[in-house]
């Protein structure tokens, strides 16, 4: 054999180099030497079966049958600990996309309106946003991957056993009476405080009470609705305390009250002044906007929990 076989040997050599460069340094030479000899022997037998000398095309077919270099190299590695376990892949992807989208949704309008960097000309705002807040939002996926890596290391170092599993509260309808009693007391205190402020502002006239003075329009139109809303919420709490459990009806009422609360607060935010003084009015509206977001988040979580309940399958009638 002379002349032509040099090409198949070079091809096998190139293939082996492509495999071993993906292996730990201390393994490379040993694995490379063995793999090259094994591939060459396999190719010789293949050529013998074909009744001709091995050529480049035959060598290429031989190594392609062996596998892609990255896949073959992966097989040399012992099975590792996945950074993102399959059961968490979906949640991880959602958390990544939602986190980045929220940052972009928050920063892009402000950047385009010029609030974030007023000195940047209007035509350059999008580009300036992309290289600052746009790309900057990608810290979030990096942060999540780092957290998952730490979690994977913890799982590997201290593997969990089945004995570590504890049931979560399976009875989601149970009402903790002490906690709900505390909630009821806090609600009553809040209403009392609100009424006390309104009364003291009307009774005493000094700079402190002036800061907390309600707008007359608010007191005339929106405040009474708020009182009705609070009364409904307190009635629901009392029912829950008495019954000690959630029922389908009380859950529906609670859901409706939360939605109504969001609508009411949105009305307060956009429907005119709450306080006479600007600082109190604006900070209260900011707080209300935040509360709306929290309640909407809680509603989404409630719906999710309802979805996660195990429902009977739809039976197929034959």
């Amino acid at each position: 054999m002379s002349g032509r076989p040099a090409a198949p040997d070079a091809l096998i050599e190139a293939y082996v180099l492509d495999v071993i460069r993906r292996l730990p340094r201390r393994q490379r030479n040993d694995v490379g030497f063995e793999l090259r000899a094994l591939l060459a022997e396999g190719l010789r037998d293949r050529a013998g079966d074909a009744g001709r000398l091995p050529d480049e095309a035959m060598a290429l077919e031989h190594v392609r049958q062996f596998g892609r270099p990255d896949e073959v190299a992966a097989r040399y590695h012992p099975p590792g600990v996945p950074v993102i376990p399959p059961a968490q892949t979906r949640g991880f992807a959602w958390a990544t996309v939602v986190g980045v989208a929220l940052q972009w949704a928050g920063s892009l309008p402000l950047a385009l309106s010029g609030d974030l960097a007023p000195a940047v000309p209007e035509s350059s705002r999008l580009g300036a946003w992309w290289i600052s807040y746009g790309l900057g939002a990608l810290w979030w996926p990096g942060f999540l991957v780092t957290v998952m890596m730490v979690a994977a290391w913890v799982r590997q170092t201290w593997p969990a056993t089945v004995a570590d599993w504890k049931p979560r509260a399976a009875d989601r309808d149970h009402v903790s009476r002490p906690l709900y009693a505390l909630g009821l007391a806090a609600s009553l205190c809040g209403i009392a405080l609100w009424v006390a402020i309104a009364w003291s502002v009307a009774t005493f006239s000094n700079p402190f009470t002036r800061v907390l003075a309600f707008d007359s329009g608010f007191l005339a139109t929106r405040a009474p609705v708020l009182l009705i809303y609070w009364a409904a919420g307190i009635a629901l709490l009392v029912v829950l305390l008495v019954e000690g459990r959630w029922r389908d009806l009380t859950r529906r009422i609670d859901f409706g009250l939360k939605l109504a609360g969001c609508a009411l607060m949105a009305w307060f935010v956009f429907g005119g002044r709450i306080f006479i003084e600007d600082p109190a009015d604006q900070s209260t509206k900011g707080a209300l906007a935040l509360i709306i977001l929290l309640i909407l988040g809680q509603l989404a979580a409630d719906l999710w929990r309802l979805r996660r309940r195990i429902r009977p399958p739809e039976a197929q009638h034959s």
């Binding site: 393994q27 097989r75 040399y76």
Partner: peptide
């Protein structure tokens, strides 16, 4: 590696080379 693959194949257990050789190392 190669003789092992042949021995397995002769008895009806064909294993791809790309699977067998890394397995030996593992």
């Amino acid at each position: 590696g190669y003789s092992l693959r042949q021995a397995l194949a002769e008895q009806g257990m064909v294993v791809e080379e790309g699977t067998l050789y890394p397995l030996l190392r593992r």
